[in-house]
Amino acid sequence: MSKEPTIRVEGVSKRYGEQYAVRGVDLALMPGECVAMVGHNGAGKSSLIKLMLGLTTPTEGRLTVLGGDPASAAASAIRRQVGFLPENVAFHPSITGRETLDFYARLKGVATAGNPALFERVGLEPAAVARRVGTYSKGMRQRLALAQALLGGPRVLFLDEPTTGLDPALRQSFYEIVADLRDAGTTVLLCSHALTELEGQADRVVVMSRGRKVADGSLATLRGLARLPVRIRLTLADGDVDGLARRIGEGAALTRLAGGVVELACANDDKVGLVRRIACDGPAVRDIEIVQPSLDEMYAHFLRRPDALGPDSLAEAAE
């Protein structure tokens, strides 16, 4: 596996009229890497994907996909190795699933003989494949859309909000397919709002806000950067909250939650010390739970303070 980045974005900006959709973004995606891009609507995620697909050209900066310019006339060779699952796609309702996939396979120059295997991989039954797309459920349509994105074994895969409207079981099988692809060396770029489900799926998270990249790094790196408090939840045996407050008080904020649970918030570095103090000279504890800041909280943190990360700390985060 080569260690050259499959996608390289250097100082790319995209302006529509006076409005910047993407502003000064640097990004490098490696083979076999699953990167999640998060940010609210209008943060520049879709604009960035369109640039990478070569549907639009950057106003400033340079962008290469698989070593070439995706918007150039010679981009056909690149596009044959790229898969794309758009955010909203409504295939023609009066055409069957098989005909739809055949059409896209022919356009991509892929033999249609491999399509049944692809349908099986995304979990579309042969009976469903022979039916018209108009009769499909949301989940089936999304599976069909994924099948077309997987045509020809792409080396780069763009998934724009792939799991919106899918039930948890479907989502699970969806991420299993993504993990298989990543392990096979495909670069996967995933856009999502559903941050919690990205935990454990993405190797790296890129946070976008108002066209800028505001954070980039693994979940652990971002956690360190955000310095969000870790919360320790205790279920006390005797319910003596005041006693706990007296003994543990300093260095941790204390909140009472429903069901007699007490929550202590502390900095990540103080976590181990605090747990030791609770265990050694705290009150009797029936249950203990340590809650790491979730992706949602980190995301909110980075969006609240878009300038919190200077270029220096960004470089740090990327390492």
């Binding site: 056909s76 794309f84 796609v89 409504a90 356009l107 120059g109």
Partner: peptide
Amino acid sequence: DRGTMTLLLSYPVA
């Protein structure tokens, strides 16, 4: 409108 154009243009077609 249906989103199929974006998809179509991401394929190797002019």
